[in-house]
Write a protein that binds this DNA or RNA. Structure first.
Lengths: 106, 106
DNA sequence: CTCTACTACTTAGCGCTACTATGTACTTGT
DNA sequence: ACAAGTACATAGTAGCGCTAAGTAGTAGAG
């Protein structure tokens, strides 16, 4: 599982951010709610730091009613491009995997 | 792409071996034929060494008409179990990815 | 008969990403 | 005062695919 998430998790987070801006704690909660129970908070935060450094997301700090201020991330144009590239790559792999599952290649 | 193959490539190779025994050079050729052009020979051989060490495949050395002897790998029962586990994991991820692609979670 | 190309396998070192573990900081309820 | 929930940060580790370079066998071109 862990190995399979490599590269995919980043795409998942970009896809989440494509529907609406979100902050780390929230993203982690969404992942957990979808069954990705084992994803640690640290993993998500580190990923967010990375994609921020990559310039695919914009960040604004928003005060929270409960707890420290939130860092709300949103996809920028470069991020949308990267997301499309992700979907292309994933589509390519998924297509071939499905074919393999239903009877193999040759 | 590279990152997305992590964990997946092993499953792909197990799936290939599930249809019929094969040797490294042959597996590399099949991957290339399916569009995985960038996968280096070394990657496949290293993977085969790993899954052999894990005990999921059996190996026999078979003389070749042209070139050095082939190491023909075949899935053993433990390998079939691992393959099923791979399909379960992949199914889990693929399901959620598809859902994300068609409109998102929430 | 040497040279190239194809077949076939091996392995040391690298980079990237997710995980582990731990820490900080703010708010609310007991 | 203390626990629990909210929210973020980060140093160190492990695993896997890639790079690069090598060995070895066969066949055909020149």
């Amino acid at each position: 599982m862990t190995e399979m998430l490599k590269g995919t998790l980043e795409g998942i987070v970009l896809a989440i951010l494509a529907t609406q801006p979100a902050y780390g704690y929230e993203i982690t909660a969404q992942l957990r709610a979808q069954g990705f129970d084992d994803i640690a908070e640290g993993t998500v935060y580190a990923l967010l730091v990375r994609i921020e450094r990559n310039g695919t997301v914009d960040v604004v700090k928003v005060p929270s009613e409960k707890g420290p201020p939130r860092k709300v991330y949103s996809l920028n144009p470069q991020g949308r491009e990267q997301l499309e590239e992700f979907w292309r790559t994933w589509g390519f792999v998924a297509e071939r995997l499905e074919k393999l599952r239903r009877g193999g290649w040759q």
